[in-house]
Write a protein that binds this DNA or RNA. Structure first.
Length: 493
RNA sequence: GGCCCGAUGGCGGAGUGGUUACGCGCCGGACUGCAAAUCCGUUUACGCCGGUUCGAUUCCGGCUCGGGCCUCCA
């Protein structure tokens, strides 16, 4: 399954393309990371699950992967691209905390989610504020030919590069002009690459530059960090689909200016050969938002008793380019699916251990042939623009195969899970039993009640036995006599 | 107003010019004191109107509905 060519959908050409590394044997990937002014919601995290699957696939296929994810801790504005407040500054003011404390707190919260979702660590987390000098150098390099200065900052003139906005399929004209434009801008789409601190104000985060004291523009950061660590052109740039319209076209324009090349008919001139975008996680009401005040964090799912990998499963069931509907019912379905996989693997591990201790050699020498078609299906699915939905079915079919050696089957499952990242070989059924925050009964109380019930059943006192079971059910505990775990939390809304 | 995307069975969600997606749920069976859990089996679909075709859920056109972007957003 490693020799199938990997096809990926390139947003720049809107076509599937066979992955051809810039550097033979290597894969260099940059992922637009979070702005750490608040907690990430689960929709945000979908982007990193997607990037993780991409990275795992590239690794699995033998490429030496260098994956970079940035942490935006400066420069991301609240509204209008040029006149708005910095998100970081705003949150710091609201919370009366240092902006650096805000950044650290939310970066750590983000990293906790990354870990909980079994997302592999990238080769490098690039922190935007550590690259400010590099950003200034980058801006200096393109300022003369591509930028102009206004009172509010240094602006990029999008008319100075060819094919501006191709990624977004944007027209060069400006439409309705609904946006409040900054006085003096040459083109409506021009954007700030350096934002001067207004006279008389002081920001918590500001740096000296040839254009005055201020802070870098958001778009500049990604150009600089990706180029600095991966070198232009690199292989793949990923991000949420929203970035396809503004952020990435602007990034591309800067990259073109920096590399002194023109024309996006040659994809590499954009800075990356392939631009990939994951679609949104949505709720009935529309896409997820943080603006409503309360939003879906991974921790909320955990508090309700859902294992975080159930969310990963939910993501894997859909194609990354499709919108995915979130519901508690759907999350529950994903959890059940995950649980059944985990139970099957646990049973296999037990069986395998028995065979090994009894020194029974695998009887079926043709076992590899039985797995071959499923491995091929799995590999084909993943290679077809990361179709994890199909890949999952191949995994489940492998689990259902009868009369094969347990060890061999485990090896196949392990190989598949290298890409899916569901942690199937180490996760246990008990790990999935997460205590809901609302539960009041202690596990000791549950054990005590179960012990009483066991006595009653032994005495064939089923009235007592059923009463005790009902009592537990009333407290959100589901008794399962035929399950090795014995009981589970009953999840519901 | 402009650009773009989607519409699949109870829910989620793949995919395809003629053949079972799949998962969860429902239903039936095994197991169980009865259940639950588990395992096995099973049911229901491709928004509307035209066109192309021997044949369309799949291609083309129109319509309706929904969503996204055009301002920050994964």
């Amino acid at each position: 399954m490693t020799d199938i060519p990997l096809k990926l959908f390139n947003s720049l050409t809107r076509q599937l393309e066979v992955f051809q590394p810039v550097h033979p044997g290597e894969a260099r990937v940059y992922t637009c990371g979070p702005t750490v002014y608040n907690y990430p919601h689960i929709g945000n995290m979908r982007a990193y699950v997607f990037a993780d699957v991409l990275g795992r696939t590239l690794s699995f296929k033998g490429y030496d992967l260098t994956h970079v994810i940035n942490i935006t801790d400066v420069g991301h504005l609240t509204d209008d691209a040029d006149a708005g407040e910095d998100k970081m500054e705003k949150m710091a003011a609201q919370r009366a905390q240092s902006i650096w404390d805000i950044a650290r707190h939310y970066t750590e919260a983000y990293w906790a989610d990354i870990k909980a979702l079994n997302i592999r660590q990238p080769a490098r987390w690039t922190i935007a504020t550590e690259y400010v000098p590099a950003m200034i150098d980058f801006a200096k390099g393109i300022a003369e030919r591509h930028c102009y200065e206004l009172d509010s900052g240094l602006y990029f003139d999008v008319s100075t590069v060819a094919d501006y906005g191709r990624l977004a399929r944007a027209h060069t004209d400006e439409g309705e002009g609904r946006i409040e434009t900054v006085e003096g801008k040459r083109n409506a789409a021009d954007f700030a690459i350096w934002r001067k601190t207004p006279p008389g104000e002081t920001r918590q985060m500001e740096w000296d530059s040839p254009w005055g004291r201020g802070a870098p523009g958001w778009h500049l950061e990604c150009s600089v960090m990706s180029g600095a660590v991966l070198g232009f052109p690199f292989d793949i740039h990923t991000g949420g689909i929203d970035h396809r319209e503004i952020h990435h076209p602007n990034e591309i324009a800067q990259n073109q200016a920096h590399c002194c090349t023109n024309g996006l008919d040659v994809a590499a001139n954009s800075g990356a050969n392939i631009w990939m975008h994951n679609n949104f996680l949505v709720e009935r009401s529309g896409k997820m938002s943080k603006s409503a005040g309360e939003f879906l964090r991974l921790q909320l799912l955990i508090d309700k008793g859902y294992h975080p990998l159930a969310y990963r499963m939910l993501c894997l069931q859909a194609h990354y380019r499709s919108e995915l509907e979130f519901s508690w019912e759907g999350l529950g379905a994903a959890l059940v699916r995950l649980k059944r996989l985990v139970m099957a693997v646990e049973a296999l591990k037990t069986r395998h251990a028995e065979l090994v201790s009894a020194s029974i050699a695998p009887s079926d020498t043709a076992t590899g042939e039985k797995f071959a078609p499923f491995l091929e299906r799995f590999g084909g699915a993943v290679s077809d623009d990361l179709n994890t939905a199909i890949a999952l079915t191949a995994l489940e079919e492998v689990i259902a195969i009868k009369k094969v050696d347990a060890g061999d089957k485990l090896a196949v499952i392990a190989a598949m899970d290298t890409i899916l990242g569901l942690d199937l070989l180490t996760l246990t059924r008990a790990d999935l039993r997460i205590r809901p925050k609302v539960a009041t009964i202690t596990e000791a109380e549950i054990d005590a009640t179960l012990a009483l019930r066991k006595e009653a059943r032994a005495a064939k006192d089923f009235a007592t036995s059923d009463r005790l079971r009902d009592e537990l059910a009333a407290q959100g505990v589901e008794v399962m006599d035929g399950d090795s775990l014995g009981w589970d939390w009953k999840l519901g809304e």
